[in-house]
């Protein structure tokens, strides 16, 4: 009996390994295809030009948050030179470049592997990569192809799209791989820190604190990264609540993505106990895909019902905090 149980555990681990190999392989294929589309067939997904901002549509350059905050000299420079720091070296070596993201992601993956094992660490990496990369890409493409019509509020508030990334060498659909990797390691580090500082807290509370740590760091990071000196990504005008010049839905997204992913990932061992690692891996990915759709629906409802309700309660048409950002 013991021999049979050992064999079962061994075969389950083998299947778990096979799953991670296949999942990494598929992810690589999507990255290669997306990178080819982005750089060599930009017309397919209407990729905005980084050299000529006058060609931007949904949003046009004039319909972005950054345009409102720019000086006349900055606007002229942008029209003449395009996005700053767009060479290969800054894209790779910047603090949010591919190489930096890969380095930090590797460090956190090694840590995760030591504490939770290869399979759990791989599931965190693959799961968070797909979860956030897909969510970001859907939001970007919805904005680009429908001008964010899905986000238009009940009062038919005008939107000009959502946002898009300007820099990246490797891409996952329309999200830079560096961003997906950053989501992975930031989520992992924040959830780990919450676990370390509050070891006796419930899973929900720890996941919430992990999400809040990440959101708190982003409150400084986002205004810097979207400034005219960097322009890592560009926000379209239209969100009725803006915090530090950034659409508030960004911060809502940061919190929910990390909070929810931490919960799903910590369920994983229980799923594996019930159905084995192989089936648990598929169930995990399925839950992630369903969660992506759920999150999209939530964000649409959030922007159409909750925000509109909040603003009408306060008797305002929009809230920009602080003014002038």
């Amino acid at each position: 009996m013991i021999f049979k149980a050992d064999m079962y555990v061994k075969s389950e681990k083998e299947l778990g390994k096979k799953f991670t190999i296949v999942a990494f392989g598929l992810l690589m294929l999507v990255i290669v295809f997306s990178t080819y589309l982005h750089h060599f067939q930009p017309h397919v997904l209407k990729v905005p030009s980084v050299t000529d901002v006058s060609t931007w549509r949904n949003p046009s350059f004039e319909q972005t948050n950054i345009y409102e905050r720019m000086t006349d000299a900055e606007i002229e420079k942008m029209r003449a030179d395009g996005i700053p720091g767009r060479g290969l070296l800054p894209v790779i070596f910047d603090s949010q470049g591919d190489l930096t993201a890969f380095l930090f992601a590797s460090l956190c993956f090694l840590h995760a592997r030591r504490h939770f094992g290869q399979w759990m660490a791989s599931c965190f990496l693959i799961g968070s990569f797909i979860f956030t990369g897909l969510q970001e890409s859907i939001a970007i493409l919805l904005g680009r192809f429908t001008a964010g019509a899905a986000y238009v509020d009940a009062a038919q508030h005008v939107t000009y799209g959502t946002y898009f990334f300007c820099k990246g060498s490797l891409w996952f659909i329309e999200t830079p791989v560096a961003v997906c990797l950053s989501w992975f390691w930031i989520a992992y580090a924040c959830v780990w820190i919450a676990r370390k500082v509050f070891p006796k807290m419930s899973l929900l509370a720890r996941a919430a604190i992990g999400g809040l740590i990440a959101l708190n760091i982003d409150l400084w990071l986002d205004p810097v990264a979207t400034s005219p000196e960097f322009m890592q990504w560009v926000w379209a005008r239209g969100d009725q609540i803006r915090i530090l010049g950034i659409n508030h839905s960004n911060f809502v997204g940061w919190f929910i993505l990390i909070f929810w992913f931490a919960i799903i990932w910590e369920w994983l061992p229980r799923l594996a106990d019930r159905m084995g690692r192989f089936k648990a891996s598929f169930a995990f990915i399925t839950i992630i895909l369903v969660s992506d759709m759920g999150m999209l629906i939530y964000l649409i409802l959030h922007n159409t019902i909750i925000v509109a309700g909040l603003l009408s309660l306060l008797g305002k048409s929009d809230i920009y905090f602080p003014q002038g950002w």
Partner: peptide
């Protein structure tokens, strides 16, 4: 050292991505 990787990553990212980068931002 592996135990400190998540903290080192976040500190470095915070320092380079936010602090050092914010020094380069003008007109804000």
């Amino acid at each position: 050292r592996v135990e400190f990787y998540p903290y080192a990553s976040i500190y470095l990212f915070w320092f380079l991505g936010s602090f050092v980068s914010s020094l380069r931002v003008q007109n804000r």
